[in-house]
């Protein structure tokens, strides 16, 4: 009886809370009433117009000849010349291929690692030990790629580097110059990427695991599910929406394979596999001043990324009821 009475009291107030307050109609009176808020938003809106929307408008450069004296919008129209050039250049396909290989390694091959780490953290029941380990694994996320590549250069150095010393200690050839080799580029790139972000990416999965209702595990145990089955059926099923959302978010990056890392790992020795669209745009655009051409390449990259995000999000909201917005 008492419980039902409680519930009866609770219902109206919780209903009140859930009542959605909608934005007011756009008219002078309402706008004037919120003038303080608009004033607070003003710098923000100006910022995004200048640093995001103006460059979007600047994409007209992809169809124009850039001249310093007339600025972004001044040059003569050149039609689709830059696009033709990109599609006719056989080298372009190497960059696209390299980008796709690197980004799919990062998006798909690297995906299970932080999930597994989160599951592993979840099995360490001593809170102190666990949070100690967790804070160590987050650390590399806060270091610049410059630092990580600096460390790699030292550890992977021929002869004197730690790895080569270990190899020669075990009787192998200790003079390999890993960072100059085409063959080791992908593994260096992949494992340094996993190493840097495994802990940080595990946070969100770990939080999702913590949010799973503990009574589900008890019920499963009563039904006779052992630990492994509990992990499979309850933990992994419970964090599936999180995995999906993060995966969708990351798919927008399918054509940008992570500029910082790749640019810094790129050496004359591994150029064939390490030149990606991002580094190519920087090289042709910022470094050799072919602004129009580089804009065109960057624009295709951006549009494909946008289409992929929209498509995947649509698919996910239909199929799994999970959406970004």
């Amino acid at each position: 009886m008492v419980m039902t009475a409680d519930k009866k009291i609770e219902t109206p107030s919780s209903l009140k809370k859930k009542k959605k307050v909608k934005p007011m109609k756009i008219n002078f009176e309402n706008i004037w009433q919120h003038r303080a808020q608009y004033f607070m938003l003003l710098p923000c809106i100006i910022f995004f117009i200048i640093f995001s929307y103006l460059p979007m408008a600047g994409m007209v450069l992809a169809f124009k000849e850039f001249r310093f004296d007339t600025g972004i919008f001044g040059g003569a129209w050149v039609g689709l010349q830059y696009f033709e050039r990109f599609f006719q250049d056989p080298q372009s396909w190497t960059f696209v291929k390299n980008t796709l290989i690197i980004s799919s390694m990062k998006l798909i091959l690297a995906l299970p690692f932080p999930i597994i780490l989160a599951l592993m953290f979840n099995e360490i029941k001593n809170n102190k030990i666990r949070s100690f380990f967790q804070s160590i694994t987050y650390l590399p996320h806060f270091l610049s790629w410059v630092v990580v590549v600096g460390i790699l250069q030292s550890i992977l150095a021929p002869n004197t580097g730690l790895l080569n010393q270990m190899i020669s200690f075990l009787g192998g050839d200790g003079s390999r110059f890993f960072l100059m080799e085409e063959a080791s580029f992908h593994s260096v790139m992949f494992w340094s990427y996993v190493w840097k972000d495994i802990g940080w990416s595990s946070i969100i999965y770990f939080a999702a695991i913590m949010g799973i209702n503990p009574s589900l595990y008890e019920a499963a145990a009563i039904d006779g599910a052992n630990r492994w089955r509990q992990i499979w059926h309850i933990t992994l099923t419970g964090i599936r929406p999180t995995i999906l959302i993060l995966f969708i978010l990351s798919l927008g990056n399918i054509l940008s394979a992570g500029f910082d890392q790749i640019y810094l790992l790129k050496t004359p020795g591994n150029m064939e596999v390490s030149e990606i669209i991002d580094t190519y745009v920087i090289r042709t655009g910022l470094q050799s001043g072919q602004f129009g051409y580089a804009t065109a390449v960057g624009m295709m990259q951006g549009i494909v990324g946008l289409i992929v995000v929209l498509a995947v999000n649509r698919f996910a909201s239909k199929k799994f009821n999970t959406s970004l917005w």
Binding site: N30, F48, G302
Partner: peptide, 30 residues
């Protein structure tokens, strides 16, 4: 502020820049 007129539009206006950008070259020229 939930009552702010045009709140949804402004939020989208900001959020959209996360999905799409003009690329590094126009940004640099700006």
């Amino acid at each position: 502020t939930k009552t702010l007129p045009g709140r949804k539009f402004i939020t989208f206006f900001i959020f959209f820049t996360m999905l799409f950008s003009g690329g590094i070259v126009p940004y640099y020229l700006v």
